[in-house]
């Protein structure tokens, strides 16, 4: 177990260094950082001085080492556009994105798993056929279209829910939350549904397929032959076995929710990291882009590591003491 975690940690560090290398190379190869910082009328001598001062004349490896060390401390430099430290810019928006992703993830699991179980058990019913058809639509419609349709219907026509922004937020230290105000909660509804819909259908279909598979296994047949009631067979034995592979996908998808909140954030003008990133691209604000890239990779790595450890907790077959 310890050696397993150690191994995963080493792998994680390698992944993070690779991503950092990609992020770092953006500085060198996308535009000239000096040009991005100074005005048209800066003299050549000043430019050279600045280049020297920023250490841009150092060898590649030295520069990369410096970048990686700074990044490890959360220091990604100054945004070209906002003239503020990138770390504080991101921190401001991190809470918005994480809250949105968290609500979407909960929605995904709370709706997706029960629907998957239901359609697996009642495969022939009219309702589950209806759900399956709807889920196809959920998988195939692009996120931005769903967002726009929701805005049109609930925001513009019915005027029930706000169509952009986070509403009123309450600051708890550096973390700002929309959970504590009515307008904050109302603002969360449409974007989180938009973000969750695709994942929800994906999880539902996955749970359904896995559950059907498990229901065909011998131990389910044997459980029935022992006279266990359906409730126990389905939820105690079948569902738990179904969830083992679902955990991996959920972990990956949680990362995806955070990373691909970009589109939803753009549609709803949600003041999160994704929106910041999109603006950074149009402004060629490389420090923000680099920081975003490294941060998302970090989320993926951490989530996957948690998933691997969860595997050990859920599946006794993986535990080290599996001796006979």
């Amino acid at each position: 177990m310890i050696s397993f975690i150690f191994k995963r940690l080493v792998q994680s560090v390698i992944v993070m260094l690779t991503v950092a290398l990609i992020a770092f190379s953006m500085f060198r190869f996308i535009g000239d950082p000096i040009n991005n910082m100074v005005g048209q009328d800066t003299s050549q001598a000043d430019r050279a001085a600045l280049t020297e001062q920023l250490g841009l004349n150092d060898p590649f490896l030295v520069q990369f080492g410096r970048f990686a060390l700074n990044a490890a401390e959360g220091n990604f430099g100054i945004s070209y556009k906002y003239r503020q430290p990138v770390s504080s810019l991101i921190l401001e928006r991190l809470s918005a994105t994480l809250e949105l992703s968290l609500v979407a993830a909960i929605l995904t699991l709370v709706v997706g798993i029960p629907l998957g179980v239901y359609t697996a058990l009642k495969g022939k019913g009219l309702l589950s056929k209806g759900i399956m058809t709807l889920s196809l639509i959920g998988v195939s419609l692009p996120t931005f279209l769903i967002g726009i349709l929701l805005i049109l219907f609930f925001g513009v026509m019915l005027r029930w829910l706000p169509t952009f922004g986070r509403g009123d937020v309450v600051a708890l230290g550096w973390w700002t939350t929309g959970f504590l105000t009515l307008s904050g909660i109302k603002s969360l509804i449409l974007p989180s549904i938009t973000l969750a819909l695709f994942q929800m259908t994906l999880i539902m279909r996955l749970v359904r397929a896995e559950m059907l598979e498990v229901l065909r296994t011998d131990f389910i047949k044997f459980a029935r032959a022992r006279g266990l009631p359906d409730r126990s067979v389905h939820f105690k034995h079948a569902l738990k076995n179904t969830l083992v592979p679902v955990i991996t996908i959920t972990g990956l998808q949680l990362g995806a929710l955070i990373a691909f909140a970009i589109i939803t954030e753009s549609v709803f003008q949600w003041p999160g990291m994704g929106l910041l990133f999109i603006q950074a691209i149009s402004d060629v604000d490389i420090p923000i882009m680099a920081a975003y890239l490294v941060l998302i990779a970090f989320f993926f790595v951490v989530i996957n590591m948690i998933v691997d450890i969860l595997y050990y907790a859920v599946d006794p077959r993986l535990r080290a003491d599996s001796s006979v």
Binding site: T217, D218, F219, F222, R226, H237, K240, N241, R317
Partner: peptide, 15 residues
Amino acid sequence: GMIFQDPLTSLDPLQ
């Protein structure tokens, strides 16, 4: 009572 062929798959692996 019923006993099936394959003991390796007749028991719930997670319990």
